[in-house]
Design a protein around this nucleic acid. Structure first.
Lengths: 234, 234
DNA sequence: CGAGCGCTTGACCGGCGTCAACACCCGTGG
DNA sequence: CCACGGGTGTTGACGCCGGTCAAGCGCTCG
């Protein structure tokens, strides 16, 4: 197991009452009375691209809320193939399954610089049975995770290579500026779409040639969507 | 909307205390006190193959526990393609998402004769905040649903046609007699594996020719697995 | 400036999709 | 009882999409 340098990643203990994205996290609309039941520290952590938040099958320390950045969830199939089953963004929760089993069902790796807060399992467990609000927030997070998983199958793993790449571009649009879309290494995109990285590269090139998208950086990670109607049509 | 003939499907009101599969359902290990909080009727329902349990986006009446049979969850993508995102079997729960949103995220259709019980949302909602046991049973059901969804991506939507068909055969093994496996129409299998039905048919034929599997019925729906090691190897 | 990595592009080939013909099962009606 | 027809499954021929292998480009960093 790769040791996670907690010391370097740790940024302090969260003050959840004053969280910048509190309206989208688990602790949205908790009362002062609810907060008084929290007896374990909630840590702020940062991870660099490629660093592992947690590994499949390991004992869980807590569940993670993504404050900024993106995290890939990687599943290793029985025959050793690695597959990216989902990408988490701001407000998404990683490791919910640990609430039920105490272990993580897949591996979580930062795709870009990531900042998260980690809530210990005991906190959720003791609050979950007592706070009606947290209970229903949890239901919402589960529902969103499951819907994302199903969306992923329905949208990104169906149809031709050009359809898949187009749908990934649509899925990865910036929520604030929807004609910006952030992509990943061609290798990662291949693991998301079940395509070889050369095929992904070819499809991107095709879209560039047709000026459907325009590169923003020189790394091939961010694109402006010029003709969204041509993306949906494929 | 296709009207569901509730009259013909309804088999009575459940007596959950004496449920035959109670050890695997939501109400496992509830106390008498918990049961006393249930004030709405829990219905037993049956569906014939092809009948719809509920449709995507409709107002939810309750969540369904599969008592016997199999149910496919179908997702319609934005461009109209239909994709089977999962298959539910005994003990699985359908429509959990309604707890969070009040609506169903996908369509549920019986693949074979199905018997389910339907628990009204109010029952879960009022119990969920009060019964520690139901709360944790719910977490388990969510976790299982999400894991199944991720498994589906990782196992059935990755690799060559023969790998996909082999993995479906493995996934659909009978829990009691693991060298029996139940399949579906070639069309449905195609929608599960993202293959055309002719390709599915060819792969099945190949396995029959190599005597890896042996047909049990004449309809091509049930097979005996003769050489499981050759399924895993592909 | 060179090493190294990731991305692009080309050439080639095999697997899967497409189209079509045919076999099989089962209902209905003569 | 068989004839017929529709639905589903199988099989073949062929072409194209995407995988494979390889060469070359461009960026970054030592």
């Amino acid at each position: 197991m790769i040791p996670i340098k907690t010391a370097s990643a740790w940024r302090g203990t969260s003050d959840c009452r004053n969280c910048g994205i509190r309206d989208m996290v688990l602790f949205a609309d908790l009362s002062e009375q609810d907060f008084s039941l929290i007896h374990a520290p909630i840590d702020d952590l940062e991870f660099k691209p490629g660093e592992t938040l947690y590994e499949e099958g390991t004992q869980a320390l807590g569940i993670f809320t993504v404050r900024s950045g993106m995290v890939k969830l990687v599943r290793v199939a029985n025959d050793g193939r690695r597959r990216i089953v989902r990408v988490l963004r701001q407000g998404d929760v990683a490791g919910l399954e640990a609430l039920a089993t105490g272990r993580y069902d897949c591996e979580a790796i930062a795709l870009v610089p990531v900042s998260v807060c980690r809530v210990p399992l005991e906190v959720i467990r003791s609050l979950g049975g007592n706070s009606q609000r947290l209970h229903s927030n949890l239901m919402n997070k589960w529902q969103r995770a499951l819907k994302d998983a199903d969306d992923w199958i329905a949208d990104l793993n169906f149809g031709s290579a050009s359809q898949r790449v187009a749908n990934l571009l649509i899925k990865m649009r910036d929520p604030i500026n929807p004609n910006l879309s952030t992509l990943f290494s061609r290798e990662d995109m291949g693991a998301m779409l079940d395509l070889k990285f050369e095929t992904v590269s070819r499809e991107i090139s095709k879209l560039l040639k047709e000026e459907v998208i325009v590169p923003v950086d020189k790394l091939g990670r961010q694109y402006q969507i010029n003709k969204p109607e041509l993306l949906i049509k494929r």
